[in-house]
């Protein structure tokens, strides 16, 4: 079974993870329909190093991992603060 070497919890079988796609910046406020549709439906799929959301079920925690999608190598765990953004409130 494939393993993900996840910094912090060590190598783990991939079945313990749930993949949640690439880390993407928030959509611009009041984006046009075209911009929004592009953001919602399109992904580049190009090979390279991606920042991705990985959820480890047994520990119930999220990780942002930089993964080379060509070699499948996990390069590092990104500090969540690096990807966090504030949301506006009423």
């Amino acid at each position: 079974m494939k393993h993900i070497d996840c910094p912090g919890i060590g190598p783990r079988p991939i079945v313990e993870f749930i993949y949640d796609g690439e880390v993407r910046p928030p959509a611009p406020e009041d984006a046009s329909l075209e911009v929004l549709a592009d953001r919602v439906f399109n992904r580049s799929g190009a090979p390279g190093v991606l920042r991705e959301w990985w959820y480890h079920r047994p520990t119930g925690s999220w990780y942002v991992l930089e993964r080379d999608t060509v070699t499948n190598e996990i390069q590092r765990a990104v500090d969540p603060e690096e990807v966090a953004y504030a949301i506006p409130m009423l």
Partner: peptide, 11 residues
């Protein structure tokens, strides 16, 4: 260890 055993999340 928090892991998956027999398809179930356990400690």
């Amino acid at each position: 260890l928090m892991a998956t055993v027999a398809g179930v999340d356990v400690w």
